[in-house]
């Protein structure tokens, strides 16, 4: 991103904050429903010093991280296995296409049935949603292996494991990163959803509690926090990706031949 685009982005965000400040103050919207920015900020400031808030953030991030970790590990292993064995791929393609579009939130009743309001409920939803993001990307990645690179490895008598480790995995890695980045965002959405709907501890539950107790500015403050978490997660994922894939076309840019 260039400096100019960065400045524009900051200006846009500042504009939004001013707008939210101005709308209720000018009486254009009822400030019971949309309090001005300054009151939301004040509520956030009060909240930041409470242990309860940080516990909620911790709970949300715990559910997010564990769920994401399980989804990524399972997605990578299953993806490589299915992708590397053509028979398995053909046999599972239609099943994947059937299971993948099922919205994770449709599993909420099942999650409650199995785990009640425990972390398990959040994990079930997070893992289900994130797993497909990773799996599909890994399948694309495995399909992208260059036949010449693979023949090179075979001609030098690489064993099956060495071919997975040195040819398949590096080829699939950019796809894995894309999958993880997508999964990380989806996982956060589902973690907050689970807390909000099921009442598992975390930011989602705090938002619901703030809403039912009429603490509207706090509710907005907590919503803003979930947004900030999302931005932070995405930025971190991108940075990690750029560092790990310095060799890849999408990162290295044009090289003079």
């Amino acid at each position: 991103m260039t400096r100019g685009a960065g400045l524009l982005g900051v200006a846009g965000l500042a504009g939004l904050l001013v707008l939210v400040e101005a709308l209720p103050r000018l009486g254009l919207v009822n400030d019971d429903y949309l309090p001005p920015t300054s009151r939301i900020a004040a509520a956030l400031g009060d909240e930041l010093v409470t242990g309860e808030f940080w516990r909620a953030v911790g709970d949300t991030l715990t559910g997010w991280a564990i769920g994401l970790l399980i989804a990524v590990a399972a997605g990578v292993v299953v993806g490589i296995l299915i992708g590397a064995v053509p028979v398995l791929r053909a046999a599972t393609a239609s099943t994947i296409e059937f299971l993948r579009p099922i919205p994770s939130v449709a599993l909420i009743p099942l999650a409650v049935l199995l785990y009640g309001t425990d972390l398990g409920s959040t994990l079930l939803l997070v893992v289900y949603a994130a797993f497909w993001q990773v799996l599909v990307q890994v399948l694309y990645g495995v399909a992208d292996v260059d036949p010449i690179a693979d023949e090179t490895a075979r001609s030098f008598r690489f064993g099956p494991w060495a071919r997975v480790r040195h040819v398949l995995w590096p080829t699939a890695l950019p796809y894995v990163f894309t999958g993880v980045r997508l999964a990380a965002s989806v996982a956060l959405v589902l973690a907050v959803t689970a807390e909000l709907v099921i009442g598992a501890p975390g930011l989602g539950k705090s938002i619901a509690v703030a809403q039912t107790s009429g603490a509207v500015p706090l509710m907005y403050a907590l919503i803003a926090v979930t947004g900030l978490l999302g931005v932070g997660i995405n930025l971190a994922a991108r940075m990690f990706e750029r560092r790990s894939l310095a060799w890849h076309q999408s990162v290295r840019g044009e090289v003079p031949a």
């Binding site: 690179a149 090179t152 001609s155 040819v167």
Partner: peptide, 18 residues
């Protein structure tokens, strides 16, 4: 064993991540 091959497509035969 004891055989090595050089491919026409050097760009695809060399591993760009190494």
């Amino acid at each position: 064993p004891g055989l090595a091959m050089v491919f026409q497509e050097y760009g695809r035969s060399l591993f760009p991540w190494m």
